[in-house]
Amino acid sequence: MRLHVDIRRHAYDDLAVLDGVAFTVEPGEILCLIGPSGCGKSTLLGIVGGLVRPTDGRVSTEGALPEGSLNPFTFVFQDFALLPWRSVAQNVAFPLEHHRLTASERDALVAEALRRTGLSDFAAALPKQLSGGMRQRVGIARALVVRPALLLLDEPLSALDAQTRELLTEDFLDLWLRERTTAIYVTHNLDEALRLADRVVVLSRRPGRIKEIVTVGVPQRARRGPEAATTLAALRERLWSLIRDEAAIADREMVHG
């Protein structure tokens, strides 16, 4: 499924947040959104996922949904958004409960999602018993259990420590390489973007406009190798040069605004 995003303008009252943001997400690609704080990345993701109504613009799809998809777009949230009173398995089952599925069908889908995310041994645990990384795995399992056409990840690793972030990035990449679920991934972290993305959309400070769409051009599997190091370093420098001044100005706006 291909996704077309065309947001001519989005504002909260008089505060313009997005201005002329248009791009297409190709089937099976990871598109990363980066930009300074407050540039509207999460708002844009909310618009794509139907949680925020754009002031002027539309998001449309082209092509068929994956077979058995119960929900076309699902989110993975920065703060996990797990129901603390439910076990891991019950959290993963939550998005299935309002679908017409038998108990055995539901259990099978949950078991499969837990297996894919390495959570099978933690099915009965409560979120409070899990580390941050494991909680985010639950968030990912919950997003995958409905077989989405598009995963929307809103800074999914930013609440985690650096080591857990590394581990989870690896795991997410492994998962994506197996399944090739189309994804839009919001991050502040340039290295994370360069590890995962096929293309990186760089947004300006508020109101967010597309400054550039950078194609990474190195297959994800090859990015850990020494051959890719020079290319990735150059791309990192390029991305940083695109957002450095914007981020500095945005930071001052945030402080004094």
Binding site: G50, L51, E97, H98
Partner: peptide, 16 residues
């Protein structure tokens, strides 16, 4: 609110 938004993102009905 993030829990509500999470549920809405899965099209969970209001009553649920």
């Amino acid at each position: 609110r993030n829990l509500i938004r999470m549920a809405q993102s899965f099209d969970v009905p209001f009553r649920d």
